[in-house]
């Protein structure tokens, strides 16, 4: 009898691993594998250096590297007002994908400076900014996402009509925002320090969409709702 039990338990332990819906998966002793991950949140790190890095290393950009304690400023070699926005703004946006120092810092600070002082010149460059923005969001890297979302929030308030000009491009930008809108930690009564540093992606996405709706004119909400169905208006109701 004990030998019979032994063989029985041996049979039970020897499970057959099978993929779902395969013929094997229908056998009694098979253990069906879970479905493979769809990879919606999977990070796609930068595989090759960006054009921004190339141009910076070649010395094409009108900026200078600083080695002082106040490391939050860029020294511009020419006045920003005199820069060709069609050439430089897409180049700086392209650098948003970079996380390596100093490229990441220069791109972020350069974009913010150019948006702050660009005025009416920004509006005409919008179509050229969409691809760099989309590429940056598609990396799905936490740092890059936070940076790009903050830049988007700055972009819509940088000049008149920019918010409206972005509406036709929601189809390119918003799918990634739709994925990350729920990326928010539930810590109960714990403290999420990312909130203080504005690094909570879920909150940033919500803020960005609200900025889009506020500055995007009357068509903005319905277009956002089409791409991000869980978004609720911050203006209506």
């Amino acid at each position: 009898m004990p030998s019979d039990e032994k063989t029985k338990s041996k049979k039970q332990t020897k499970a057959l691993v099978a993929e779902g819906f395969s013929v094997k998966s229908r056998l009694k002793n098979s253990v069906v594998l879970p479905p493979p991950s769809a990879g919606a949140f999977k990070e796609n790190p930068l595989d090759k250096p960006t054009d921004f890095r190339y141009f910076y290393e070649r010395g094409d950009l009108p900026i200078a590297l600083e080695h002082d304690t106040k490391g939050n400023k860029i020294a511009w070699k020419v006045e920003i007002e005199k820069l060709d926005y069609h050439h430089y703004l897409p180049m700086f946006f392209d650098g948003l994908r970079e996380t390596k120092h100093p490229y990441g810092f220069f791109a972020r600070q350069g974009v913010h400076d150019m948006l702050e002082h660009g005025g009416s010149k920004i509006l005409t460059v919008i179509p050229q900014l969409i691809i760099p923005i989309k590429k940056a969001l598609e990396l799905r890297e936490h740092k890059v996402l936070c940076k790009t979302l903050k830049v988007l929030q700055h972009l819509v308030v940088s000049a008149d009509m920019v918010g409206e000009a972005l509406v036709p491009y929601y189809r390119q930008i918003l799918p990634i925002l739709n994925i990350f809108i729920n990326k928010n930690l539930n810590l109960g009564d714990g403290i999420d320090y990312g909130q203080q540093r504005r690094e909570n992606v879920g909150d940033l996405v919500q803020e960005t969409l609200e900025a889009f709706e506020t500055h995007g004119g009357e068509d903005a909400f319905i277009n956002i709702k089409y791409m991000v169905p869980t978004y609720e208006s911050c203006r209506l109701n």
Binding site: K73, W76, I80
Partner: peptide
């Protein structure tokens, strides 16, 4: 908004 440094480079402020 803008200052010119001693080396001729420009600093922009928020």
């Amino acid at each position: 908004k803008k200052l010119v440094r001693k080396d001729g480079y420009f600093y922009y402020y928020n």
